[in-house]
Amino acid sequence: MNVSSRRFANAVVLSVAGRLDQDTCEAFRANLMTVVEDAAHDGGAIVLDLSNLEYVSSAGLRCFVVASRQAKAQQGRIFVAALQPMVGEIFKLSHFNLLFQVFPTIRDALNTVSTEAVAAFEKG
């Protein structure tokens, strides 16, 4: 799987591509926690761009919870955006849509973070 990040003011968009499962979750979690420490504090946020995530298993979903717990402890937030239909359905079947705010687009998620974040995103 591939992970890349872009910063928009006080938000970081972390784009996750491929399959997030038992085989990939350990490396992904290490990567995610580094970004959480760096960006999700003092009102800052991470937007997980899942537009290219093909599949997520329970082990992958667990990474999101661990990261969210850490973000909350440092007054940061994690949002989820742009889910493919299959991943969106897995979120619903596992009740993860009740744990995370899920947005249809990255822009919608950044709009919730701050006006600066969405303005930086629209600038490109």
């Binding site: 329970s58 919870v65 596992s94 009740h95 993860f96 009740l98």
Partner: peptide
């Protein structure tokens, strides 16, 4: 539990 519950409040 549902998965979200098992991983979060009831972990």
């Amino acid at each position: 539990y549902a998965l979200a519950e098992a991983i979060s409040v009831k972990a």
